[in-house]
């Protein structure tokens, strides 16, 4: 997309069923690829969003298929903004033990938000009792090439 184009917005809502994470990935990757985003960034964003959606399905919504996960994407020329919202009981990212601590290295879980923070430019977790969790991430995009 060019610098003068209006930002594009996309939304997807899926029930909290583990298999639906692949649908979110297909939805996201196809739109980013259509917009000409480079594959390295697509992979980073896909890893981050699938992390957040897995957390929303498994932990936020506790696998309840009646609870939804909402994914909103705003794609501008120079930045990608994504929000993932669940209907769960809230989540405190500071309560997650460091995955780098020696005693946690062989834990099978607990690295998701750490990886998201590494791959994205900004990560904000907005959670409160009774209003679910919204995770907002941004990734800077390469400036569009002038034609």
């Amino acid at each position: 997309m060019s610098a003068t184009d209006s930002p594009k917005t996309y939304q997807l809502v899926v029930p909290s069923v583990p298999d639906r994470v692949t649908e979110v990935d297909d939805f996201l990757e196809s739109r980013l690829r259509d917009a000409g985003i480079n594959e390295e960034i697509i992979a980073d964003v896909a890893i981050a969003v699938t992390e957040i959606v897995n957390n929303a399905i498994d932990h936020g919504n506790a696998g309840d298929p009646n609870k939804m996960v909402r994914v909103s994407v705003v794609l501008a020329a120079d930045v990608l903004k994504i929000e993932v919202t669940d209907e769960g009981g809230g989540f405190d990212p500071d309560a997650v033990a460091s995955p780098l601590a020696e005693e946690n290295l062989l834990r099978e879980v607990g690295r998701g938000i750490f990886i998201v923070r590494h791959l994205m430019d900004t990560v904000v977790v907005d959670a409160g009792v009774g209003r679910g969790t919204t995770v907002r991430i941004t990734k800077k995009l390469d400036p569009p090439v002038s034609s």
Binding site: I47, T50, E51, N54, V109, G110
Partner: peptide
């Protein structure tokens, strides 16, 4: 494998241990 997220890493750890 194009990429994996922490779920993939967890599976590798499960196999290892």
């Amino acid at each position: 494998v194009d990429w994996m997220n922490s779920t993939g890493l967890g599976i590798l750890i499960s196999g290892l241990t």
